[in-house]
Nucleic acid binder design. Structure first.
Lengths: 206, 206
DNA sequence: CGCCGTATCAACCGATCGATCGATCACATC
DNA sequence: GATGTGATCGATCGATCGGTTGATACGGCG
């Protein structure tokens, strides 16, 4: 029997999650909490195996709660369930000790599968989050931008629009966009600003 | 009599500029050129006072031509006349020695005024270019982002959309956009990617 | 009190971006 | 010849951004 704690500041979400597990004979909702403080207290009191953790809550937020839970016990699985998958959401949560990361639009079957995996000590990640992490893991090879890609990135970092960059390099805007897609893939990001940031962090620019 | 050399790779533009000066008794079009190489040769041969220089031309481009002209003579005024005003266009041209910078959509009177100013050794800048340069000049004070602005910038550099950043900071997207406008003003840029780049270059991030 | 800086917000709309579907060509290597 | 890499390109469309017009509230300072 997998004991689960539901942590979310919205009652509707908490109720919806309870309903999702109602028909699973091996999963029991042991309790819920509406912020990080409550989550930490109740996880300790209820002896749960998996915590479903929202990230953005008033008071103690999800990242802080994960860190606190991680200090309490290395065994409890912390599955993040949130609307947001930007790097600024994903990385702090994983660094704090989350063992899985799903988005709230995931199908119920996927959520249930993820809870079972978390109880087994395994990780399930939303595809977009997996893509981000794979991008980071592939750093050594994917950070090798081609000469042309590097030229495009430099222009973007200096404020060129796609149109400007295209005119500057005597190619079409479609080609710029293709180069940028390749840059985003290699750097594991999804927009130009993040590409510039990542390039600086890796020492590719500057 | 101000002798002017017109440098542009498009015959239509060259003809249009000749027409613009046709009725100015104190301005004479001494010649024209379609690329940087020709520009440098003809400026020397024709003894002109002002060169109207396009930037993006095949072969030797405008920046290279400006640098070559600057080596030849400190007296000739080089007025850039181009469609583009991104930092990646403006700064190299000014570094190379341009003494003025106008956009091709400037009214004819403005262009004529700028030519006269260039002949006098003065500079006329398109408003957007002036804004950029003022932003750089104000660096010491305008680089002081507020705490909130810095938070927004950090999120953007990590890949957050305006919507993501708003949710993260529990404010509205309109507030994020306002903060970003202030950030762009203070850093002298016009889009998020350039803001991230400039922040790294100034050591605000990283 | 007035001014300034910071923070927050709304609405509108054109411009730009990102994602997606492909595609071709040149060159190098096996 | 087949394969892989890099460069180039078009078109579509929804999402997002940037610019612009304001506005209010609060705290600190002269």
């Amino acid at each position: 029997m997998i004991r689960v704690l539901i942590v979310d500041d919205h009652p509707v979400v908490r109720d919806g999650l309870r309903g999702a597990f109602a028909h699973e004979p091996d999963i029991e909702v042991a309790g819920d909490a509406s912020n990080g403080r409550e989550a930490v207290d109740r996880a300790a009191a209820l002896g749960v195996h998996v915590v479903l953790m929202d990230l953005r809550m008033p008071g103690m937020d999800g990242v802080q709660a994960i860190a606190a839970l991680r200090q309490m016990s290395a065994d409890v699985g912390v599955l993040v369930l949130t609307t947001f998958d930007s790097e600024s959401d994903v990385l702090p949560a994983i660094e704090a000790g989350a063992t899985g990361y799903l988005l709230k639009d995931a199908p119920t079957e996927e959520l249930i599968r993820a809870v079972r995996a978390a109880a087994r000590g395994e990780s399930v990640l939303a595809p977009s989050v997996a893509h981000q992490l794979m991008g980071r893991v592939r750093k050594p090879s994917t950070s090798a931008l081609s000469d042309r890609e590097f030229e495009v990135l430099r222009l973007v970092a200096d404020g060129a629009s796609n149109r400007d960059a295209a005119a500057r390099l005597f190619i079409s805007e479609a080609s710029i966009k293709t180069h940028l897609q390749h840059i985003y893939d290699k750097l594991g990001v999804r927009d130009r600003a993040a590409a510039v940031g990542e390039a600086y962090r890796r020492g590719l620019l500057g």
